[in-house]
Design a binder for these strands. Structure first.
Length: 380
DNA sequence: AGTATTTGACCGTG
DNA sequence: CACGGTCAAATACT
């Protein structure tokens, strides 16, 4: 627990620091008459996510024992606006069955930690709650559930086969309140979902971030209106904001730790020990810049949001500390019919994966061959 | 080409 | 043997 604890703590500090930074930004926007309502809303959203994340981390750290499944489902209610906590009749709680009965004597499916989170999409302004957990998910199935009105989507980490990451999640749209999605996570990520890493803070490099964010946004906003940035001042603004926010925090983090380093050091585990899944989930000892680690990476408290039926997910924005927050607020405003809502969500959710972040790292040459950043999706 | 998503078959549990 | 979870072939996107 030493290492882990360390990270946890760093990440936590990181997250909180970011939250503070965001709050400051918001403060600034409050005075500036130029900022739009959406922008502020966006910041609030990020701040909330930051809190959420911090809380999640705390929850985890206390249960990271590992061997013990503990797995009580942690249901996190999202969204400031009341409700959402509505306990569902059926399966609501009873997720504490993670033990594997080894009727055959052999241990197999280890009891994976499992927890759920409810994310709500608010009709009023936009998406609420963590929208993206920064992980790349791949949909592998969908099923109609007995009493559920909407089908349940099954997702697994995109890097399952490359890195043996066993994390999966299910997304179930709430029956009565279609704006709520219940996301159940299982297993922690062991993959190095890098991505968000980022960028060196050296002035020149920084620029790299921009394109990325822009890309993300565009992909996430393949919706109606904004098609082309041209006439969407709002989205533009948000993009910049998003960008800015990320950058700021980022540098902030980095600075905090190493004042003027040119680039954080990366050390990846040379072997992806999956197979070892049976044992302790993760063990990765990659050393990432705090900003990255905190994305979870190893810690997977990862709140997130997924699209309900159809649609997959993946993508991750480039945000240092609060990646889940790094959500393009572009299509934040929608408030129409459900069908439409769904569509939007899908769009947002299915944001790409491959083209994700395209960053060029300075350390091209020296990299552990085994490391599998590899696959697509990493660098665009 | 290389991927991601869709979907019905398949399979293990309760 | 129904339900819920996965697989995998077919299909859709890039």
């Amino acid at each position: 627990m030493e290492n882990m604890g360390d990270w946890e703590q760093k990440n936590l500090i990181n997250e909180l620091t970011q939250g503070r930074e965001l709050a400051r930004q918001l403060q600034g926007h409050l005075n500036a008459s130029s900022s739009s309502h959406e922008t502020r809303e966006f910041l609030v959203q990020k701040i909330l996510s930051s809190y959420e994340k911090s809380l999640s981390m705390l929850r985890w750290s206390s249960s990271v024992g590992e061997p013990q499944p503990i797995a009580g489902a942690v249901r996190t209610s999202e969204s400031p606006p009341s409700l959402v906590g509505s306990p569902r009749s059926e399966d609501s709680d009873r997720d504490i069955r993670d033990l594997d009965h080894t009727s055959d004597g052999s241990r197999k499916r280890k009891a994976l930690p499992r927890w759920t989170q409810q994310v709500r999409v608010s009709p009023g302004m936009g998406l609420e709650g963590p929208l993206d957990d920064g992980f790349s998910w791949r949909k592998y199935g969908q099923k109609d559930i007995l009493n559920a009105k909407y089908p349940r989507g099954y997702y697994r980490c995109t890097h399952r086969h490359v890195q043996g990451c066993l994390a999966t999640k299910q997304v179930q749209r709430s029956d009565e309140d279609p704006t709520i999605f219940e996301i159940t996570y299982r297993g922690r990520h062991t993959c190095s979902q890098a991505s968000t890493i980022m960028a060196p803070q050296s002035s020149p490099e920084v620029v790299l971030q921009e394109p990325n964010n822009v890309m993300d946004l565009q992909q996430l906003n393949p919706q109606p209106q904004q098609q082309h940035d041209h006439h969407e001042p709002l989205s533009q603004e948000l993009m910049l904001l998003n960008f800015q926010a990320n950058l700021k925090v980022q540098t902030g983090n980095l600075d905090t730790h190493h004042a003027g380093q040119s680039f954080p050091s990366f050390i990846f585990p040379s072997s992806s020990t999956f197979e070892a899944a049976d044992h302790h989930p993760t063990q990765q000892q990659a050393v990432f810049p705090a900003s990255m680690i905190d994305n979870n990476f190893v810690g997977s408290y990862s709140p997130s949001f997924m699209s309900p039926e159809t649609s997959g997910t993946n993508y991750f924005s480039a945000s240092p500390g609060g990646m889940n927050t790094g959500f393009p607020a572009g299509q934040l405003h929608f408030q129409s019919s459900e069908s439409e809502l769904t569509e939007i969500i899908s769009a947002a959710t299915s944001a790409t994966n491959s083209p994700t972040v395209g960053l060029d790292f300075p350390f091209g040459p020296k990299f552990d061959p085994n490391f599998s950043f590899d696959n697509h999706g990493f660098f665009s």
